[in-house]
Design a binder for these strands. Structure first.
Lengths: 151, 151
DNA sequence: CTCCATTAGTACGATATCGCACTATTAAGT
DNA sequence: ACTTAATAGTGCGATATCGTACTAATGGAG
């Protein structure tokens, strides 16, 4: 791979990182006290993908050590946003379920971001982002598959 | 803003977050022991924007508390990747300068990512990312300006 | 010049994240 | 069935990140 191509990929992912930093910091500042981005992203994942999965599955989905997920889930349970149930199929394991509070928490959190979206939309309408979305999803799936690669 | 537009913005930023998570976790796993993503991103920023700035300026650039930046910079100094000098224009302040080790560390770190870029390039050539890059940069600048917004 | 609000950095305690080691359970080989 | 390897989750100690409070220096008002 030549230098220019490498630079393109690297610049792209650098921008991704900066964007995530800006969005995460902005959203986290609007969350209720005691709740962090990690809590929100887990809740969001459970809504998108469906709940009832195991803590370990969540840890893998987020590329995070399972001990970290244990801690994050404990926080969600403490705030009444999720509940842990024994896994009937495996006595070692558990299931993570959203509560109603968890689902409404997500809605409220997203709602707080709408003013930001509106300011962005003056310069960048939703259609322009929608055009790019498939590329991002394709890229995400590609990197997801690539996780186990050795080098 | 209607529901569909909101969903588009939100999905977009969700993808951004997932992508960053995948890329960061992958790159961090390739860094030398004791060095984290925070160290790499600061080094990278210093190369891109130029060194000699103050710790506080870095903290603001990364949307991070200044105490966090103090800690991260201490790690860079400890590993010989950067050095702190007194700021001749302000005796309260300091300047952060990259060492040669710091610059070569960045090159090595980027090089370890090239295999990933190459696997991605089989499905998504650099040109397709280059097309999208201006949009990401525009979006980043927009969000950057929006930081101080009240609601 | 003096006063004092502001700013740059740090010390310190609290929480988040991580790696390692351990228990309980399951799965696999014989 | 028995033995062993692999898996799911947790306890615990280490480091990262964050919020508060502090010191030193700056800069502006009078």
């Amino acid at each position: 791979m030549d230098k220019e191509q490498t630079a393109t990929y690297f610049s792209f992912f650098t921008e991704i990182g900066i964007l995530d930093q800006l969005v995460s910091a902005g959203l986290e500042a609007r969350l209720p006290a005691g709740l962090l981005m990690s809590h929100f992203t887990v809740i969001n994942h459970l809504v998108r993908v469906g709940d009832g999965g195991t803590p370990l599955a969540l840890a893998r989905a987020f590329q995070v050590p399972k001990t970290t997920m244990t801690h994050t889930l404990a926080g969600l349970v403490k705030h009444g946003l999720a509940e842990m149930r024994p896994n009937p199929k495996d006595k070692r394991s558990k299931q993570v379920w959203l509560t109603e509070e968890g689902r409404s928490f997500r809605k409220v959190a997203i709602a707080t971001a709408i003013p930001v979206f509106e300011r962005v939309s003056r310069k960048i309408p939703a259609e322009r982002l929608a055009e790019v979305l498939p590329l991002l999803q394709e890229l995400r799936e590609l990197l997801d598959e690539d996780r186990d690669a050795k080098d």
